[in-house]
Design a protein around this nucleic acid. Structure first.
Lengths: 358, 358
DNA sequence: TAATCTCGCTAAACCGGTTTGCTAAACCGG
DNA sequence: CCGGTTTAGCAAACCGGTTTAGCGAGATTA
């Protein structure tokens, strides 16, 4: 009774056992109406007793689609999953994907190369987040003929894409602080994924910076270069950025952070520095992640529809995947300022101190 | 010059164009050393000029493995991705998977059935998180012959699994509060995924509750049933649970929360209720998510190695996937109490008030 | 010089299904 | 009883690769 590795049953095994052809078995699973009802159910019974399940890979091969969509991230997954922004985005993606019956496959730059990772991925289409369109890898993916939907990218005009009004949101944030009388600013930015790379002026962070600067300039406030510090988009990154600014002698009354995680770090660093928020320091973030309304004080920030971005990207993608719909939409969603507790009027004393030297 | 949908080039196209056999093309890609160097590079050149890439699905079919591992979650992905615990866990999974050259495929109960979702999934193995081993779906997956690694489950003895010492951690949390003199407790628990289901005493939450109760009992403190409230494992869930308890007239001096997210919600609700932490109320969480050290005050909590759980699960899984290693390991990791700012001595007045009626 | 080995490559089988084209039997109205 | 239409099911081609077995030519050995 030697039990040799019980090979997974194949369609031929079922066919033999049920005394029918492979075709019949296939029909029993995929279009039972083409078989006599009793034959179909007999085949299904035999299949069940044998523990047969159609091999998903073989099925993919003939059906020419995988019912899976890929999510392409510029950074390694091992660093991105606990980023709350990415979490919320993924929720949106997952919601739409699940509704449409698609599974999710995460693709990260395996061993450094996105293109080679893509080569191994069995997906019907890809949602790309936060990668500039001129990124060499993106071009390779397009060349491979895999449908794409780009999010937060400066997209090619013929690609489906989802963006938000980053510049307008940033401008609103700055104007809010200006209206509160602030004149001394610190901008806390997200560093580019590749260390040392120049800030892409067309990228998300470039747009936000542009929004800040244009609002400030319109009110006669100049932002010196050293008043822009950058770091990783995390709480720790925000803490470090704020500390660094203070060590450099900066004494802003308001911080414009390009991400909520960093803003929360600034909040925390401020507490350590003995600064009260918002009395001594106003802080405004960007993104409006779930956590933002639960900080102490609640964070004033620029809301963007993160989940909806994920959802919309999937919908756009599937519209071209399933209907081979060439007409690709470009979606642009709005941002809006959420004024909560972390911003307040500029402190008087600080303003006077600043005025003296001028 | 009518350009018909430029069909994806197949291996036969490359073979014809290069004047060699399909086999040679396959060799050029997979084992170039079996070909004369110049032949190999010529084939590769031709392939490149044609834009040929071996079809990943076809390749999977013959090679019998997909280089993909699945992550199986009991809840829909659209609700789980912004859970910080899951985020950290996924980071661990992704780290190990990326290192080993595996991609990640997330599987959630598609249209309600985990088993049918599994049927469509093309994975070499599955990491299962937070599902009890007697869950019917788990059995089906095992029957399908897909290797499994279970995390936070009461695992079958012959399955690789990773758990932590939940009971010990919970006991340590309770003992910490007991040592601070607290006698009036509120336990804030995570509700089971299926509403209305009884708490599995062998599950994670059951173990934690047992830990709390045993420590309290050892010190002569009894916990009435209504002093255990449950809700979803989120900040909102924690807020709601705390409010509900207060409305029910409970006035604990210490809260034992079974998740950090809920503990953070309790912190927030306490602030709204005018309670100072830790002067009026001590709060201890569970998990030690990244955020826990950045709350105000920093959260005392039970640390568990979340990322490592993900990593270890993947390593265990791959050891059976790749080496068909029957000897499956059961890993049990330690927890440890992190005392931070959210716990302090029991308030005197409250204690006296309590003493009066007794 | 004959026998053996190695190299470079190929033909054919195979992975496990789906789909197309077709046939034989049953049905059906006239 | 006959021609035409359904119905039920089959054989073979196909999806796009990988892998095994083997072949001819040149190099090496006996």
């Amino acid at each position: 009774m030697e039990e040799r590795t019980p090979r997974r049953p194949r369609i031929a095994d079922v066919a033999r056992e049920a005394g029918v052809s492979k075709t019949a078995v296939s029909f029993a699973f995929n279009s039972p109406d083409r078989l006599a009802p009793e034959t179909a159910s007999r085949i299904l019974d035999v299949a069940d007793s044998l523990g047969y399940r159609p091999h998903p890979v073989a099925r993919m091969l003939t059906q020419r689609h995988t019912h899976t969509i890929g999510v392409l991230t510029p950074q390694a997954l091992s660093v991105i999953f606990s980023n709350p922004f990415f979490g919320a985005f993924s929720e949106g993606v997952a919601l739409a994907a699940e509704q449409e019956g698609y599974a999710l496959h995460f693709i990260s730059p395996l061993h450094g190369s996105l293109a080679s990772a893509m080569g191994r991925a069995t997906v019907d289409g890809v949602v790309v987040i936060g990668l500039s369109a001129d990124h060499p890898e993106v071009e390779q993916i397009r060349a491979a003929g895999v449908p794409l939907a780009m999010v937060d990218c400066t997209a090619l005009p013929d690609q489906p894409s989802v963006v938000v009004d980053d510049e307008g949101g940033a401008r609103a944030a700055a104007e809010h602080l200006l209206a509160l009388g602030h004149r001394d600013y610190l901008v806390v930015g997200v560093e580019p994924p590749v260390p040392g790379a120049k800030l892409d002026p067309e990228g998300v962070m470039g747009k936000r910076l542009k929004g800040y600067l244009s609002a400030l300039a319109a009110h006669g406030v100049e932002l010196p270069d050293h008043a822009v510090v950058v770091g990783p988009a995390s709480i720790e990154g925000g803490i470090a950025a704020m500390r660094r600014a203070y060590e450099d002698g900066l004494r802003p009354t308001a911080v414009l952070a390009m991400s909520d995680a960093m803003a929360i770090g600034v909040l925390r660093a401020a507490r350590e520095l003995g600064l009260r928020v918002p009395e001594d320091l106003s802080v405004v973030g960007f993104d409006d992640i779930d956590l933002a309304q639960h900080t102490n004080p609640p964070l004033t920030t620029v809301h963007q529809p993160i989940r909806q971005k994920g959802e919309s990207a999937v919908r756009l993608l599937l519209s071209v995947v399933e209907r081979r719909d060439l007409r690709s939409e470009q979606l642009r969603l709005e941002t809006r300022l959420m004024v909560r507790g972390s911003t307040g009027p500029a402190p008087r004393r600080r303003q006077e101190v600043v005025r003296v030297p001028s």
